[in-house]
């Protein structure tokens, strides 16, 4: 009888210690859900969703303060992924936040750029190289296509150039869309 109680007590102590150790050792920093949502968002930092960037929007979604259909650059595919992750219904993109466009990067027309630095100040990802009265150039690899540099330019020398689909930029398309199209054709 006493032996049995001791064995059970010993078991409880060992398991409790193991759980306590695991809680400290494998502690997750931050909110994993926010990170998962942030990973789906396109990281354009364009602010079209009404939040200052992708991470604040992800935080708002996780807190249920924002809907999942406010991200035009992410498009329908992004909304589908968010709906899957969060177990919510798919909704079409909310019109007030903008329309889905092909992924583009900004391009500066060098013959009209006057080196005013206004676009550099607007760029959320530091993708523009330039300084006062020096030529400004967009680093295409870092440009997210957020279009935030377009309105400040006083000479309208920035245009958006759609990206060509290359081996590096190609992504798996969400299969549901294509399956539906095939059904319609058949």
């Amino acid at each position: 009888m006493l032996a049995a109680i001791l064995v059970m007590a010993l078991g409880a102590v060992i398991l409790g210690a193991a759980l306590g150790f695991a809680a400290i050792k494998f502690k997750v920093e931050g909110d994993p859900l926010v990170d998962k949502i942030d990973a789906i968002l396109p990281q354009t930092q364009c602010g079209q969703c009404g939040f200052p960037g992708c991470k604040p929007y992800a935080t708002a979604i996780a807190k249920n303060e924002a809907d999942i259909n406010q991200c035009p650059p992410g498009g329908e595919e992004g909304i589908r992924k968010l709906a899957d992750l969060l177990g919510r219904e798919f909704k079409s993109l909310s019109a007030e936040h903008g329309v889905e466009k092909p992924k583009s990067v900004a391009f500066i027309d060098e013959s009209t750029c006057i080196g005013c630095t206004l676009c550099i100040q607007a760029c959320p990802v530091d993708a523009i190289v330039g300084a006062a009265k020096q030529m400004h150039t967009i680093v295409a690899r870092q440009c997210t296509g957020c279009e935030l540099c377009l309105p400040p330019c006083p000479v309208n020398c920035i245009s958006m150039v759609p990206l060509k689909e290359t081996v590096e930029t190609w992504k798996w398309k969400y299969p549901v869309v294509q399956l539906k199209q095939q059904q319609r054709v058949a």
Partner: peptide, 14 residues
């Protein structure tokens, strides 16, 4: 950053 000079003259553009 290594810069390049402007092509357009800001005064002319204005």
């Amino acid at each position: 950053e290594i810069y390049r000079p402007l092509i357009a003259d800001p005064k002319e553009v204005r």
